[in-house]
Simulated assay, not measured.
Amino acid sequence: MNFLFRLFLTFNATSLILVVYLVKERCLLENILPLFSKLPDFISYTIYFMIPLVLTFLSLFFSKFLDNDSIQSDDHSAIKEVEQANNAFLPSYLGYFFVALSVPHFETLVFVFVILFVFTFLSQTLYFNPLYLVFGYQFYYITTDTNVKVFIITKRILKNPYDLSFPKLKRINNFTFIDQEV
């Protein structure tokens, strides 16, 4: 289950590159399904955007079935430092968009997408998906009292590391967790 979920998260994290390319190339749904003829172009683009949005929502739903975990200590908070990570990944994501805008052919896009997908999956350090921001999630690096840095996806605003607890963490991999507590 965890392997399939990580594949799903990787696809969600990289799928916007496909949306940007389809919009750039003016690929309309009417070319695929005549049912959509005579609709404005933005309807096609909105539907393209909604697909990764719905898949991201599903990943959030399925995350509750992952293994439970904790980074707690028995007598005190095991968290030494909290660092917001939202802005750290935006340059990388903007790079994906620029690649999608500059790729001239669909075959090239598929090749580039597969490479990005494989590297994102194999890195296994985190699964930054900017669409989580739409659902109210934030991204943080948490440093534990044993100097292990983990990536936390949560709806909570984290400021003070000394009174933090995560009783409902779900493990995505050894260094990435999603907080189920709202």
Rank of each mutant, 00 (worst) to 15 (best):
M1K: 11
M1C: 08
N2E: 11
F5H: 12
L9E: 03
L9N: 03
T10G: 05
F11H: 08
A13Q: 00
T14M: 12
L16H: 06
L16G: 01
Y21S: 07
V23K: 06
V23N: 02
K24H: 14
L28K: 12
L28H: 09
L29W: 03
E30A: 12
L33S: 15
L35C: 10
L35E: 14
F36P: 04
K38M: 14
K38W: 13
K38I: 10
I43G: 13
T46A: 14
T46Y: 06
Y48D: 00
F49Q: 04
P52S: 11
F57E: 01
F57T: 03
F61K: 15
F61D: 13
S63H: 04
S63D: 03
F65S: 13
N68F: 02
D69S: 09
S70G: 07
S70Q: 09
D74L: 09
D75Y: 03
S77E: 04
S77D: 02
S77T: 07
A78N: 11
I79H: 00
V82T: 01
A85H: 01
A88T: 08
L90H: 06
P91I: 05
P91F: 00
S92H: 08
G95F: 09
G95N: 08
G95H: 05
V99P: 01
V99Q: 05
A100I: 02
L101I: 04
F106Q: 08
F111E: 02
I115Y: 01
F117I: 03
F117G: 02
F117R: 01
V118H: 03
V118G: 04
F119A: 10
T120R: 10
T120S: 12
T120K: 09
L122G: 08
Q124F: 08
Q124L: 11
T125R: 09
L126S: 12
Y127K: 08
Y127H: 08
N129D: 14
N129C: 11
N129V: 06
P130I: 06
V134H: 06
V134S: 11
F135D: 11
Y137R: 01
Y137T: 00
Q138G: 07
F139S: 05
Y140V: 04
Y140E: 00
Y140Q: 01
Y140D: 00
Y141E: 00
I142Y: 00
I142A: 06
T143R: 05
T144P: 07
D145Y: 08
N147L: 12
N147E: 14
K149D: 01
K149I: 08
V150S: 09
R156N: 10
P161H: 04
P161Y: 01
P161R: 11
S165D: 14
F166K: 02
P167T: 09
P167D: 14
P167V: 10
P167I: 08
L169R: 03
K170E: 03
K170S: 01
I172H: 05
N173A: 06
F175K: 12
I178A: 03
V182S: 13
